[in-house]
Design a protein around this nucleic acid. Structure first.
Length: 614
DNA sequence: ACGATCACG
DNA sequence: ACGTACGTGATCGTG
């Protein structure tokens, strides 16, 4: 046995590296005496599903002893070890569960309900990301330095230092480091020692704070999202290749136009601002750091385009502004979407986007690599890259106006509740309360925008700027809104007062969300967004328990995207919708809209064709 | 590393 | 009385 001696929090610890059968027997004997162990993996990178991905080692640890086993030499032992232990502590369990599933062949289904994640516990205790209001964030290193040992060895930094010596990037370093490298093995062991010690501290705090129920819920949700990540979504590769090429051509064409006006780099805001100034355009808006602002909102009016890129007819379009807008959009769509889809696909042309089930301050989920929650919705061309499996149809079920319903339930505003329960269009209803029965479509739009303003905590000026409505009409609309829904105004201001006093708000789900001192106005948004997230999260768990797990593909804030066999999709979607509508929120019915999409995601964004992907 | 920009709910 | 839009992820330029 190779061993490393460590001091953690003043205590002597040992990292053992299993080298032969005798070591392995000793490890199994040690393991049989543990009721709870931390588990971690070291790998060649983050692309679990790409062909070259390799498992280097798997580590098990108690508070004072770690065992490191090579993932290739001891695969059989590792599978037995995983099967013979009741509960595991992991940090960021999604990654390790998927690694174990994909490389060791120990299926994730066998880990269900047996994993405790220190990242989840840390997020419940403080959901802010690193640096937000001085928060520690959720990385093992930072958490361990606070709760375990302020001088705890930093394994990631040690490896990064080593990679720098080797003169390779971090990614190249992980991909090329020898699997028996002492730095890798030693720090692999230290990570599990830190993880289990961190768990001991956080578990007690979570229990004392009354978050145990939330913790159970988050672990279930994490497991289900990991299953969705493992399944992934099918990419239409020929289409995506062509889209990438077409967008590159489009971007270059408009870049050439911009170059004729003297802008050689469309991404350089300094160049763009200078050139537009030379045209006599007066650019008055500034960024927070004081630079001239030349974002889309500034450029669209110069190009005589409205927010939907339609000609306004108010002026002669500035052709440079127009070229920059079009070139940037084509570049963004081509690189951040089409190209990244191609780069991230696995050997079977599937994408396994990261579903970060517990992410934002509000606990909202995020999806990354690639960012599937942020694909263009104004146009179907990017979503067309994603197709259902052969014989399947995609579908979506989304909660209608979930944030407004949450706000109505939380505030108990009688008028809004009556409007929602009556089933009429809520924005029509709001407009009629604000402007009378003869309201115009313009009034309706304003009513809708003021409602969003309430949820986001915005004022009249911002609302006017965002919606394009004149400031005076926005001001009077806000007044009318407050008269129409007095309960909402009262709820918002009470919440804000509480937030200013406590620097935090507690949601209906029992989550405690920190509120920055100078941003108490955001409290309503935090609570509404967070409760809406928990309602969709609860639905995902309910759907999974009701047997619909295999049909789900992706959560998108208020929506679940899925696929089902063409012959069964109608019934499955009907039943899933019913399951999502099965519970109320504070006596407000939760209604969902279902859509059978077809063979490509594009079909719900205006694409009419069918894809033959059998 | 950070700011600006742009994509979504 | 007034005013504060909320939350993400990816990429590029800049220093």
């Amino acid at each position: 046995m190779k061993t490393f001696n460590e001091i953690i929090d003043g205590e002597r610890c040992t990292v053992n590296v299993v080298e032969n059968q005798r070591d392995a027997s000793e490890f199994m004997e040690w393991l049989s005496r543990q009721s709870l162990v931390a588990v971690d993996t070291e790998t060649s990178g983050l692309e679990i599903f790409s062909p070259g991905f390799e498992l280097y080692c798997v580590q098990f640890g108690s508070a004072d002893t770690a065992y490191v086993l090579d993932g290739r030499n001891w695969a059989r032992t590792l599978k037995i070890a995983l099967a013979s232990t009741a509960k595991f502590i992991m940090h960021n369990a999604t990654f390790d569960m998927l690694v174990i599933d994909q490389t060791l062949g120990y299926r994730m289904e066998n880990l269900e309900g047996r994993v405790l994640d220190t990242r989840i516990l840390a997020h419940l205790l403080d959901p802010r990301s690193e640096g937000e209001g001085g928060a520690p964030g959720h990385s093992l290193k930072r958490l361990a330095s606070i709760w375990v040992d302020s001088s705890a060895p930093d394994s990631q930094q040690a490896l990064k230092d080593r990679f720098r010596e080797m003169r390779v990037s971090v990614a190249e370093g992980f991909a090329s480091i020898a699997r028996n490298d002492d730095v890798l093995l030693r720090y692999a062991g230290i990570d599990v020692l830190l993880t289990i010690r961190l768990y001991t501290v956080l578990a007690k705090m979570v229990s004392n704070a009354g978050f145990s129920g939330l913790a159970d819920f988050e672990h279930r949700l994490q497991y289900i999202c990991a299953l969705l990540q493992r399944k992934g979504m099918k990419l239409d590769v020929p289409y995506t290749e062509k889209l990438k090429n077409d967008l590159a051509v489009e971007s270059e064409e408009f870049q050439a136009v911009a170059a004729r006006f003297g802008v050689t780099n469309i991404n350089s805001i300094a160049q763009v601002a200078e050139a537009l100034d030379g045209f006599g355009e007066s650019l008055t808006e500034l960024t927070p750091s004081g630079k001239t602002k030349v974002d889309r909102a500034v450029l669209l009016p110069l190009a005589d385009l409205d927010r939907d890129w339609n000609r306004i007819g108010a002026r002669e379009p500035n052709l440079l502004a127009d070229a920059i807008l079009r070139s940037k959009r084509a570049q963004k769509w081509g690189e951040a979407y089409a190209q990244s889809f191609l780069d991230l696909r696995d050997g079977e042309d599937r994408l396994h986007a990261w579903i970060n089930s517990l992410q934002a301050r509000t606990a909202r989920m995020s999806v990354s690599r690639p960012p599937l929650q942020q694909l263009p919705s104004s146009d179907w061309t990017v979503r067309r890259c994603f197709i259902a499996d052969p014989g399947y149809s995609m579908f979506s079920v989304d909660y209608s106006q979930i944030e407004m319903r949450v706000l109505a339930g939380l505030s108990g505003d009688r008028a809004m509740i009556d409007g929602i329960v009556s089933g009429v269009d809520l924005h029509d209803y709001t407009a009629s309360l604000m402007f009378g029965p003869d309201f115009t479509q313009k009034d309706r739009k304003l009513a809708k925008n003021v409602g969003f303003g309430k949820v986001y905590g915005g004022g009249a000026a911002t609302l006017s700027r965002q919606s394009g409505a004149p400031i005076e009409s926005v001001k009077s609309a806000i007044k009318a809104y407050n008269s129409a829904y007095p309960g909402i105004s009262r709820y918002s201001s009470n919440l804000q007062v509480t937030a200013e006093r406590l620097r935090e708000v507690t949601t209906a789900s029992g989550r405690v969300l920190p509120v920055d001192a100078d941003r108490a106005y955001a409290s309503t948004n935090y609570v509404v967004q967070s409760v809406a997230r928990d309602l969709l999260g609860q639905s995902i768990v309910n759907l999974f328990d009701a047997g619909f797990g295999e049909y789900m593909l992706l959560p998108i804030h208020d929506e679940i995207l899925g696929q089902a066999p063409v012959g069964e999709v109608d019934g499955i979607v009907r039943d899933m919708k019913a399951e999502m509508e099965r519970f109320d929120f504070m006596d407000i019915p939760m209604t969902a809209d279902a859509e059978i999409i077809g063979s490509s995601w594009a079909n719900s964004y205006g694409f009419e064709g069918e894809i033959n992907n059998v």
